[in-house]
Design a protein around this nucleic acid. Structure first.
Lengths: 186, 186
DNA sequence: AGTCTAAGCGGACTGTCAGTCCGTTTGACT
DNA sequence: AGTCAAACGGACTGACAGTCCGCTTAGACT
């Protein structure tokens, strides 16, 4: 794959920005790709050429927002990155994820809606899941790590995050997740 | 509200049956209300008059399938119904729910998709959640029962149930849920 | 600077579907 | 048999995802 042409790069950026803005302005669901294209000052075909479909757009948006956390867990300093004890790592990861989720509720909701059945196929989700599963296996090799991993990440469902943080703030979310994880891993 | 007219009752039934059949035949998502109406031998307007919208139809379908379990927890014999120790009740409830979910994966998926953001508003879901929350409060009054309740019910997400039971059967689902619940409640 | 061409563009077009509307039919009650 | 509100049905609307294809242009090469 050759280098992206300059105009293509500019448009990709404009589209992502437009999508963000519309997401912030109206709720999720209420953002159509027609509107995104219009706001980005770009033809509809361009949006689809770039991102394939609605799902692709929101996946990319989420990936962008999650990139920093992804690097941190792969190669950042402990306790998030390698080096710390698994339990410590998983707890700090869940903590960070809570922050991320709370800051991006609308995006998460849109993403869930767009991905629908493919939720578990999404690269960002998989990365998180793989990370969590790996750590669970170290802590409790006999547990059903795959399942437990999904349940832990289930805490960050868009609708749920909205409800919980809406009445209790991020602190409530973090506390709940932490106590669940602690219980499940000890 | 007067008694339902005979033709209306007949049609309601025909529509629910048609929806079930189409759901079983094609996947979720791929069932349009046009198709349901056609299959039920009924006009499209009738479907909407009866159920309001897509969400209403699937909610009703789920409510129908969940009715028996609902009665059992409200007034059936222990350990599901009142009388048993809370921990025992919650574990047997989750067990039953796992069976129900495994038997109705397609419906659950369709229901989730149709309800989308209103997931937590759905009467059936609320009933389950209320039940679980009440029991959690008895067992661990200091816990965030509301949040924990959502997490436990999160185990029955359509996509997740498909994955887990698809590779390990209902037993795997039950075991995972049980171990999580036990850990979180002790 | 001029030429070439594949990558990129845009927006009209299609197909699908949820939900509405309104003229027609019918069950139920007298 | 007569009445009429409830119920019916299917044409219609509006919105949107995704496709298609003729036109434009970045940028490589001379």
């Amino acid at each position: 794959m050759a280098v992206e042409r300059a105009d293509a790069a500019r448009n990709r950026h404009a589209i992502l920005r437009a999508a963000e803005e519309l997401l912030a302005q109206h709720g999720p669901e209420r953002v159509s790709l027609d509107a995104v294209a219009a706001r980005a000052g770009v033809g509809k075909g361009t949006v689809f050429r770039r991102f394939g479909n609605r799902t692709g757009l929101f996946q990319e948006l989420l990936a962008e927002r999650a990139a920093r956390l992804g690097e941190a867990i792969d190669s950042g300093p402990p306790p998030l990155g390698p080096g710390a004890a698994p339990t410590e790592r998983i707890l700090s990861f869940l903590d960070e994820l809570a922050d991320l989720a709370a800051k991006n509720i609308t995006l998460i909701a849109a993403h869930e809606q767009a991905c629908a059945a493919d939720k578990h196929q999404d690269p960002t989700y998989r990365r998180w899941h793989d990370h969590v599963v790996g750590l669970i296996k170290q802590i409790r090799p006999e547990a059903d790590a795959e399942f437990l991993g999904h349940l832990m990440l289930g805490s960050f469902d868009g609708e749920l995050v909205r409800r919980i943080t809406g009445q209790g703030g991020v602190g409530r979310l973090k506390a709940g997740v932490r106590s669940l994880a602690t219980a499940a891993l000890s």
